[in-house]
Every structure is written in C-alpha cells, then in structure tokens.
Amino acid sequence: MKNFYIGLMSGTSRDSLDACLVNFDKGFQLIDTATIEFSKDYKRSEDQDFIGKEITQKSIEIVNFLRKKWPEKNIKAVAFPGQTISHTDEYSIQAGNPEEINMETSLPIYADFRNFDIARGGRGAPLVPEFHKYFFAKEGVSQLIFNIGGISNGTHLVGNTISEASDVGPGNCLLDLMAKNLNIGDFDKNGDTAAKGKSNIRLLNFLLEKLEHLAYPRADDISFYYEIFESSKNFQKTVSSNDILCTLVELSALKIKDFHVYCNSPDIVYIHGGGIYNAFLMRRIKNLLGVSVETTEELIDSKFVEAAAFAYLAYKERAHLFK
C-alpha cells in the first residue's frame, strides 16, 4: 500500500502556503515541495471570509499542482490545517473550507486537526511534537526541537518519549508587526535592522513581566502577544525603532532560553521555521543557550517541517476526514 500524502501549512505569520508530498511506506520520504504566495492583503487581513476563501483557493491550486507534477503517485489524502483565526484550550477557529478542497481535487481531506485534538483531551496546539517524536527521537538522547513561527513552540524529547511540549513565547509575530509599522517590509530581513539597535531594559522588563504568569504546557493565541505589545506603547515613545526591534529579538530569544532551562538544558537543540532566517535572532539564541544549536536543514528542509508534520498527522488519522 502506497502511503503518499500532501501536507499543507500556513502558519500564524501567514508568509506563504507551503506544501509537501511525502511517503510513509518505509519510514519518512520527502518526495517534493512547493510554495505559493498569498495575495498582498492576506497577511494582515482580519476579514475571516476573505481569509477563508483565499486559503481554500490557494490550497486547491497547490494540491492540483503537485498532483499534475506527480501523476504516477497514488495520493491517499491531503492534510489541510486551515488558517488559525483564534485559539484557546477549549476551541480553535480555523479559516478554510475542506469540503470545497475535496470537491475541487477529488482527494480525501483531513482537516480540523486542532479541535480534533481538543476533543480528545489535548490543547490543540502545538501539534508538531508528534512529528518531532517520529522524526527526531533517538534512544538515550535528550534533545530539544524548537519551531519558530509567529509563535515559538518547543518539544523536549527524552529517548523515544515526549517529555515536554508547549508554546513558549512570541517567535516572529511581534518582529513582523514592528517591521510593518516601520515600513521596512513584512519582516526585518536577516534581523539587520534589529542588529543596529540595543535592547532596552525597561521595555524588555515590561514585556517579560506581562509573560511571567504563563506556565507550561500551554497553547498561545497570537492576539495575546499583540495586546501586550500594544500595552507597551508608552515605553515605545522614548525608544528608537532599532532598539525596539532589538528588544523584541531579545524577548523571543529569552523565552526560548526559559523553556530550554525548564527542560534541564539539553545539549542538543534543533530549530526550524521562519525564525531560522533571522540571523540576528539565531545568534542571540545560540549565545543565550550556550549549547549546540542547529537548524534542521541537513535532516529536513526547515521551511516544510510543519507541512510534513500535518501530513504525518493525517497518516495517523489525527483529524476529521472530509471525502
């Protein structure tokens, strides 16, 4: 039996829609990948109807692209996580229409992963730890895998067991928001602007105090981070733009360090997600952790880890099936 699956992913940063074609017959095999850009208004839109139509249509396009490119592959199903609108431990709202994707691709669609997990006693996020275990776990090895998207999450693996898994803090979300406010683009390329600044202790301490009540494990809603950043406006008035960006890099790095310490500071740390392209952020993480910190690039393309993770969850039938 051929277990070919297409996994899709658009993270909280809404940078693009990623897809991968994978096979689980003999372990994990990444067959192909693809990325499609959203329309220019998608990243910042708050119109749920527009978001739903866009993510649905782009998903249909990218699935049909991979199907036509690999006509000989007997694709079993598509993993469609949708686009997160809001998330709590009790319920998750995802934009997108799996029924329409099913109709337009003639493929079974696994969707609503987060509410499926919540209904079975989970928090609905993060969901990638199960794939981290499947892909990275090694007998007798303690390691920590971070995914730095809009929100950062971490998975502590001890041997073949998930010891801890949680959202840990803001990843790129506040950095991207500040970049937009400064009109330097959708993000601070390589962290170059942040690197020109200095971390502001008063602003940093204010933000850290707003986060200190958060415990592990947890699932964060991105709106929470936007709200605390908005509440820091009075501090921001007296801080240069470069310093604000630098401070936000420090905040993201420190929250990763906190989880690393919470997990007894494993010597092996892997990072994937959009955050790996922020060279300044990666330097701060490496300096703060003081251990080996590598991206997943030599093992699996970092950009497509989450898409592969959802393909794996579909393979394990950890979602509702639409067919």
Score class of each variant (00 low, 15 high):
52 G>L: 00
104 E>V: 01
234 N>E: 15
319 A>M: 05
180 K>P: 02
46 E>L: 12
124 G>W: 10
26 K>E: 14
200 N>G: 00
268 I>H: 12
122 G>H: 05
46 E>P: 03
245 L>R: 05
219 A>V: 00
95 A>D: 11
5 Y>P: 02
264 N>Q: 13
10 S>I: 01
22 V>R: 08
80 F>S: 02
25 D>L: 03
119 A>Q: 15
225 Y>W: 08
101 I>M: 05
190 N>G: 06
13 S>E: 07
220 D>Y: 09
229 F>R: 10
279 A>D: 13
155 T>S: 02
201 I>D: 15
225 Y>K: 00
290 G>Q: 13
323 K>F: 11
284 R>Q: 10
150 G>M: 11
226 Y>E: 15
278 N>E: 09
12 T>E: 10
212 E>D: 14
155 T>I: 00
86 S>Y: 13
138 K>Y: 08
266 P>N: 10
58 K>I: 00
57 Q>G: 05
313 L>K: 03
323 K>C: 11
183 N>I: 07
219 A>F: 04
158 V>E: 14
30 L>C: 11
167 D>H: 00
186 D>F: 12
306 E>R: 14
304 F>S: 02
114 R>Q: 06
213 H>T: 03
251 L>R: 06
221 D>E: 09
103 M>N: 15
108 P>C: 01
278 N>I: 01
148 I>A: 11
206 F>D: 00
299 L>K: 15
151 I>V: 08
169 G>M: 08
111 A>P: 01
34 A>N: 07
236 Q>Y: 08
105 T>R: 14
181 N>L: 13
76 K>N: 15
293 V>W: 08
203 L>S: 09
128 V>A: 15
229 F>I: 01
31 I>N: 14
196 K>M: 09
78 V>S: 11
96 G>R: 09
200 N>I: 02
207 L>E: 01
2 K>C: 07
101 I>N: 04
195 A>R: 00
148 I>V: 12
12 T>S: 06
258 D>R: 13
304 F>Y: 12
153 N>S: 06
179 A>G: 05
91 Y>W: 07
64 N>T: 01
158 V>C: 15
210 K>H: 07
132 H>Y: 02
117 D>P: 01
77 A>T: 04
140 G>M: 08
20 C>R: 09
203 L>D: 04
8 L>S: 05
39 S>T: 13
57 Q>T: 03
90 E>A: 09
204 L>S: 03
262 Y>I: 03
304 F>G: 00
63 V>A: 10
141 V>K: 14
237 K>T: 06
151 I>N: 08
32 D>P: 01
171 G>T: 04
104 E>D: 11
240 S>T: 06
167 D>F: 01
95 A>E: 12
153 N>E: 03
254 L>I: 06
254 L>Y: 13
199 S>Y: 03
69 K>Y: 12
2 K>M: 13
24 F>S: 06
173 C>Q: 05
22 V>W: 04
49 D>K: 14
317 E>S: 05
92 S>T: 07
106 S>C: 12
126 P>H: 10
121 G>V: 02
249 V>H: 13
110 Y>C: 07
276 I>Q: 08
16 S>D: 15
113 F>A: 01
202 R>F: 15
40 K>Y: 13
207 L>Y: 07
285 I>V: 08
196 K>P: 02
127 L>R: 13
2 K>F: 12
169 G>N: 12
170 P>D: 06
320 H>C: 11
